[in-house]
Design a protein around this nucleic acid. Structure first.
Lengths: 330, 330
DNA sequence: CTGAAAGCGCTAACAG
DNA sequence: CTGTTAGCGCTTTCAG
């Protein structure tokens, strides 16, 4: 039996008679034959693998996205090559190069800086999509939520509760997501004429510990501060813990809102109010977009904004004047 | 210039003169040439890729292990192919087949059943290591902690606090990790003559929601119950939330101990006492073991037990008789 | 020290 | 409908 015939059977081509097809299938079963995907890739220039670039798989936000990507990939016969970066341009490009060298059919980038000169030479010709952050201007397909509107909704919620002095703790300054959330915050400050002190805007670089100390600093310095809006849940949880540390109660003394909707925020002990993103669905959608491109779709960059949703839990409440620490109750 | 020469330069062979080496390197830079890893793999029968099989990347325990694997892989020029399973034998074998077809150099399996007939035909010849669970008997390299001793330490801590009626919520029954933790629990029951009721041992299958309802059930049914030892932190957090739900306070009414040491348990709102495993290090060690095998090491299966550590936080306290719900305080 | 040639396992194009 | 052939891009003998 010729290799070409076997190949045809495997690929389900219609050019082979039912009788030989059966014989081939039988032989395959007998010998336990498994085709070599690497040889196939070399020949067809298609690896059926996609690269997934995340800064930190340890953060449930990315883990959830990875879950979505992985499931959707499996359903479509794709395999996922996972690469982590340290958020620097160099490491992202390294990741891209590795992936391209391995001939992945496409790359999904999550959370990379919007000032990166993508597509760089490293990924010439390989389709890619951006998740959660996009470039400036948008040069590739993007999936995420409307960060501006989400932030505005969070702020609106706080304003409805009577808060007038609200701090914002942002993530990475070179990220479209952070910038749009900050714009949402600023729009709210203008629209409802909230206290507008530049010192109320700080950047915690998406890190729990930085947010923790920023929260302590802000709360101590600004006696009127009654609410903090953190640009992601990791930071929001840092804020919660920082506030605990200086004896401030949430939500009685200070309200806290996060962004993302990772599961630890929903624990009954935490009950973080937050703007929840459909993370797994974002991952799946990214996988769908990349497949379109792989199949040759060549239209303008698509921007897919999935719906967010404000989960009002127990970290927010009506604004009340804070009792000063160490003073008598007024 | 012949391809052979270029190849020699790339592979750092000593057979090429410095002068041509420079010329080649220059040309490579000029043309932005990047070698095709797929072609190389086909030729050398080495893909420099390893497969990582996890049940659920969304669980921080696996995410942390994946982080360790990924970092160690990157440091050694390996790439990680991530596959998720649904914990069934079939899906694990599917994952293995996919990985083997793609010619990965080795596979790291986390948390697969110990009754699986590994090595199965699917992975004949491809080295693999098991993380957190091993087969029965041990047929491959394994990395984890001493689950028996860890469980015993957790129990000892509870006994030291005066607890005599302690429930155990286990994970998967067909897992070595769960079984060893259960043995630790049973040894403690015998050694310190604790209350030994078979109904105090339940299985929550590593799921938050199942542990949540089991905790409510156990606490309601067993009035003397003063402590619960959950076989992993996800379940322990379910226990915490279940207890909250029926108005029981932790640790005043009931103490809770977990296993793993995932970060959400350390939040100041949660403060879960737990047996912490060095998860990232476990991932790194798994990657190291697999590389030894890939390099041809062919000795007996190695069992690497990394040190655990009991983190005593705020979910455990001295045992006290519980006030019965709805009754007056005694 | 360098080049020519063979071939990894597969698929596509072409003949029979 | 089936078999033969050529090559995907690389590495590795083996000659020169």
């Amino acid at each position: 039996m010729s290799p070409a015939t076997v190949s045809s059977v495997l690929r389900g081509k219609m050019r082979v008679s039912d009788i030989t097809r059966c014989k081939v299938e039988e032989a395959i079963r007998q010998l336990g034959y498994r085709p070599n995907a690497v040889a196939r890739s070399l020949r067809t220039h298609e690896s059926r693998a996609i690269g997934l670039v995340v800064p930190d798989i340890t953060n449930p936000f990315y883990a959830d996205i990875a879950q979505g990507v992985t499931l959707e990939a499996r359903d479509n016969g794709y395999t996922v090559v996972l690469v982590t970066t340290d958020e620097t341009y160099e490491s992202v490009m390294d990741a891209a190069r590795t992936l391209v060298d391995r001939q992945v059919d496409g790359i999904i980038f999550t959370n990379i800086g919007w000032d990166y000169p993508m597509p760089a030479r490293a990924i010439e010709g390989v389709p890619y999509v951006m998740v959660n952050r996009h470039g400036n201007p948008v040069r590739a397909d993007y999936v995420g939520v409307d960060n501006y509107a989400g932030a505005l909704a969070a702020m609106q919620h706080l304003v409805d509760l009577g808060h007038r002095c609200i701090a914002f703790i942002g993530g990475m300054e070179n990220s479209s997501a952070s910038q749009h959330r900050l714009e949402g915050y600023r729009a709210a400050v203008r629209r409802w004429q909230l206290q507008a002190d530049p010192d109320l805007v700080q950047f915690g670089h998406l890190r729990y510990d930085q947010a923790l100390s920023l929260a302590m600093h802000l709360a101590n310095k600004h006696g009127h501060l009654t609410a903090i809006f953190a640009a992601d849940d990791m930071m929001a949880m840092g804020v919660l813990d920082g506030l605990d540390e200086i004896g401030l109660r949430v939500p009685e003394d200070i309200s806290v809102v996060g962004f993302d909707g990772i599961w630890p925020g929903a624990l009954s002990r935490v009950q973080l109010t937050t703007v929840v993103q459909p993370r797994e669905e974002i991952g799946r959608e990214a996988m769908r977009l990349i497949q379109e491109r792989i199949r040759g779709f060549n239209g303008e960059p698509q921007v897919v904004q999935l719906p967010y949703c404000l989960a009002i839990r127990k970290s927010t409440a009506r604004a009340r004047r804070r009792a000063r620490r160490g003073s008598m109750t007024i």
